[in-house]
Amino acid sequence: MSDTLTIKNLHVEIAGKPILQGVNLEIKKGETHALMGPNGSGKSTLGLVIMGHPKYEVTEGDILLNGESILEMEADERARAGIFMAFQRPVAVPGVKMADFLRHATTNVRNPERKEGEDLIPMREFRKEIKDKMGQLKMDAEFARRYVNDGFSGGEMKRAEILQLAMLQPHFAILDETDSGLDADAVRLASQSINEIGHGKMGLLIITHHDKLLHYNTPDFTHVILGGRIVETGGKELAEELHEQGYERIRNDYPEAAAVNDAVEEPVA
């Protein structure tokens, strides 16, 4: 069975304000999709809705995993079903060590039926695994002992998100600007890591402004979102065009969507 994530005519509102206005998208496991668009077009919203953020209301359409709707599933059920999102601005969890956080997360995601209070992955086994993964990502061992995202630099936060991707091994991953706020070396490292961990294995939905990430993770499809709708889908050439020339042509080709886009400001999640 080929794993498929399907977005069908998705309409989403936040506090009564429409953000997504009929998004259609299908991602198969192993495919890489680039999602591009100007600010306020609804890129992050799409990711957060797939992940199950309670703030957004789906007013029409559906999200299906292997043909089954996941709209009624809470975020943790979606995570256990194999969906992951690397956040653009992950929140800090003061007082909770990365290692403890990830040990619990990894246990739950690997044993979707686990009940509260049941045993976690044995500490020894987990330590070895996280140490290997951190080595692969060239992260200092000290990282695991720090509190989740607490006092992390922008770059550290993004690497911590990639570490979580590596540990949780989802079927589908949304990467929301996992390369932003990084210097050139860090972008290269992040791009290579994502390539090793997920490219060709997971279904990736990559939201990015950089070409580096897509250079290492060549998209099978590029989608352009504008005014809450996917207005154009192409191959990797489309991503290249947008990097080189920006959104001028798209805006001219789709003036209606451009007008909607200008009226909506993407809310910060």
Binding site: M51, G52, H53, P54, E74, A75, D76, R78, A79, R80, F84, M85, F87, P90, V91, V93, P94, G95, V96, F101, L102, H104, A105, N108, V109, E116, Y147, Q164, L168
Partner: peptide, 23 residues
Amino acid sequence: FYARSRGFSRKEAIQMIVTGFFQ
């Protein structure tokens, strides 16, 4: 939400946040 997106149930997430608060 962040914890739940990593597979924590709501209750587990709150327990973790409270433990972190006291850390």
